[in-house]
Amino acid sequence: MSNSDLSQELKEEVEALLNAYVQCIDDDDLERWPDFFTDECLYQVIPRENHEMGLPTAVMWCDSRGMLEDRITALRHANVYQVQWYRHIISNPVIKTEDGDTFQVQSNYAVFKTCNDGESTVYNVGRYVDEIVRDKGVLKFKKRSAIYDTHRITTLMVIPI
């Protein structure tokens, strides 16, 4: 099944997950961010150039819920960076599923970053490539790759995409 013959209900359920995920980050509700993943998971933020060359280097690479939590603990208590906010815009989700429980989803994203000086910049643009599964009835990311076109990261990346 692809977008056209996917039931409206399933489509809305997947899109609700995509929306809730970015809202969680943009609302700085980051302690809840690991909840969007299954316990065994892979989250990576990888430059498009590496992805296209088949090179595995990612700037963030977490293969467990614990690693996702550690990212947030470090962000809150260890890392030093200027105040900043993200605003994610996501679009064009293409959803594929065979059974209504496992989904292959690709969507576009743009992240605007605003710092204390008030200037909003296009910080990171790319696509999400996801494997979404039903975990105790709830849709979660088993695998989420943010493959970014903006391969030149301005200053640093501390907040997940």
Binding site: T57, C62, V80, L156
Partner: peptide
């Protein structure tokens, strides 16, 4: 190595601040 790349680089848990300090 791939796992520990989380420590270094632009989003490196132990190195990201170097760009910041320069700025």
């Amino acid at each position: 190595r791939l796992k520990q790349l989380n420590l270094v680089g632009p989003a490196g848990l132990i190195s990201m601040e170097d760009g910041e300090s320069t700025e």
